[in-house]
């Protein structure tokens, strides 16, 4: 069986130790060699700072709360349904929506890296990528939830989704009581990023 040659060759050690200088050196090398145009880097940063973020997923959740046919379609084939809303692309090629109920709470982690539904939620927060979350969410989800201030009823089961493939999971949180008069746009403003990862609940204003 071939051995993994990468174990014996770590050229990154040739770069300066300071991370800011490492990044700067790589950027200089790649742009000077004509491999990457500098404006392409600004485009990526602008996209994930200003255009793609959890407001996208919040629109999906609010629509699921207010449109039963949409909710049924979302739970059957989320990829197609959210693509129709314009939410598709890198790190969101295969989406599955999982719905919280009084019987079952869903929570998403990627123990092996940091897989996350970028077109719906943007780039992940630091805690999602942290060793603590990756290590503990699968083994003690309730204790992790308590660190987010979430206490579930004793008869609610927790289902933790470890994103080990290219399928990205969106949690559809429960609609809070007292929001019956609100329309989808107002509801979307209540839906937090963490509630769509499953580490938060949505509360009425």
């Amino acid at each position: 069986m071939p051995h993994d040659h990468s174990d014996h060759d770590h050229p990154h050690a040739l770069l300066p130790p300071d991370p800011a200088l490492r990044v700067k050196a790589l950027e200089t090398i790649l742009t000077r060699k004509g491999l990457i145009e500098p404006a392409a880097l600004d485009e990526i940063i602008d996209t994930y700072q200003n255009r793609i973020g959890p407001q996208n997923g919040a629109q999906v959740v609010a629509r699921a709360w207010t449109d039963p046919a949409f909710r049924a379609d979302l739970l059957r084939d989320a990829t197609a349904v959210v693509a129709d809303m314009g939410f598709y692309g890198r790190q969101g090629e295969h989406i599955v929506a999982v719905e919280n109920t009084p019987e079952q709470h869903n929570m998403v982690v990627c123990t092996l890296c940091s897989c996350y539904p970028w077109p719906l939620l943007g780039i992940p927060p630091g805690w999602y990528k942290s060793d603590a979350y990756r290590a503990r969410a699968v083994r003690e989800p309730r204790r992790v939830l308590s660190e987010f201030g979430v206490e579930l009823p004793e008869d609610t089961a927790v289902r933790v989704w470890d994103s080990t493939a290219e399928v990205r999971y969106l949690v559809v949180p429960m609609r809070p009581a007292g929001t019956e008069a609100m329309d989808a746009a107002a509801l979307a403003r209540l839906v937090t990023r963490d509630s769509m990862i499953g580490t938060g609940l949505v509360t009425a204003p």
């Binding site: 982690v109 123990t111 630091g126 805690w127 603590a132 290590a135 503990r136 083994r139 987010f148």
Partner: peptide, 14 residues
Amino acid sequence: DMGGRYGDGPVRPE
């Protein structure tokens, strides 16, 4: 491959 590992301390929400 750290799923289930002990010792990483609390998760810090943002």
